[in-house]
Amino acid sequence: MAEPMLSVENLHVSFQTKDKEVRAVRGVNFSLNKGETLAIVGESGSGKSVTAKSIMRLLPKHNTKVKEGRIIYEGRDLLTASIRDIQKIRGSDISMVFQDPMTSLNPTMKIGKQIIEGLKTYQSISKQEGKTKAAEMLKLVGIPNAEERLDAYPHQFSGGMRQRVGIAMALACNPNLLIADEPTTALDVTIQAQILELMTDMQKKTGTAIILITHDLGVVANMADRIAVMYAGEIIEIGRAEEIFYKPQHPYTLGLLQSMPKPHTSRTVPLIPIPGTPPDLAKLERGCPFAPRCPHTMKVCHYFNPEMQHASGGHSVSCWLQDKRTPKENLPAGVGVV
């Protein structure tokens, strides 16, 4: 079996404030193959974006501490690589589409110049060649009158068009891996669908692997090959998309699914919210971090954090309900047994 393109191994990332340590990522493990789409889902504050920015080495240096772990990209540990090597990898090998394109695009610089600047950083091309390539990228992401729009500023584009520009910039140097951090959050439903369809089409044409970060399972339903569910800085369930949607093993995953609107059903299905709020990552208690919100908590959940239980097909879950010693009558409806 071929080695994965990217492997994140036992990653621990903390932020140090004046009087406390925020443990944002706690022992994250996953891998990504070439041409694959992995979705990382979870509530705000679960560690999704911190994990992504750790891969890109974009976290602030003054208060970030990678306490443990490795991020192996094509045989090289990105966490120990020099800044010069990381700068060569960013944009050319690994690119990122950020959540808010208005903050990731320079508002004082024309769109064409921003794309050309990225191209010239990694490729030996003339100004005219860069302009031609930039126009091709805008056409590729569905922006009409591409040659004319090269001279426009970010504020002259709608939110959806700015996100398309962000994708064009990220794909300009043909990266092997595209990290999309909540790329559709600020967009309406119609534009969301267009952006996701665009990313899928780009992947088919270029073979780029994608890590899609979102809090909305509905966004990834038709796009992801595998889904990793994060909670309190940990991956608590990971598996193929069909396994996560149709055979969820963790009560939190089930809660996310139950809180999704179901527009294709013929009857009205009430949404069931997950009670409580996510834990404070600076004040984590011992035991399972989801225990205070879980309707199926057992005594052991408050004292020990469960280990990841592996199943055939790559489906894994971290939950005491799946432990072999747990009586199966304790399992909630909708949650299966690994």
Rank of each mutant, 00 (worst) to 15 (best):
F290T: 02
L212A: 10
M109W: 06
I89N: 03
I272H: 10
S124P: 10
Q322C: 05
D280Q: 04
L150E: 02
F290R: 01
S266P: 11
A291W: 03
R57Y: 12
N10A: 13
F245W: 04
V229L: 03
P273C: 01
E285M: 13
D100E: 10
D85L: 09
G69F: 01
I244P: 01
K283R: 15
D93P: 09
R149N: 03
M1R: 13
I89Y: 06
G91R: 11
S95E: 14
K65T: 12
L198W: 06
A168C: 07
P278F: 04
M161Q: 03
S126T: 14
A180I: 07
G233V: 02
G69C: 00
I195V: 08
A146F: 01
T277F: 14
Y122C: 09
E3P: 11
A170Y: 12
P107R: 02
V141M: 06
M223A: 13
L257C: 05
D151Q: 10
R70T: 10
H296G: 08
R226P: 05
N63E: 09
I115S: 07
P154T: 08
P251H: 05
I238P: 11
I274R: 04
S312Y: 10
P251T: 01
E148D: 10
Y122R: 12
V25H: 05
G276W: 08
S158V: 05
P332N: 02
I244A: 00
T121L: 15
T121R: 15
T184S: 04
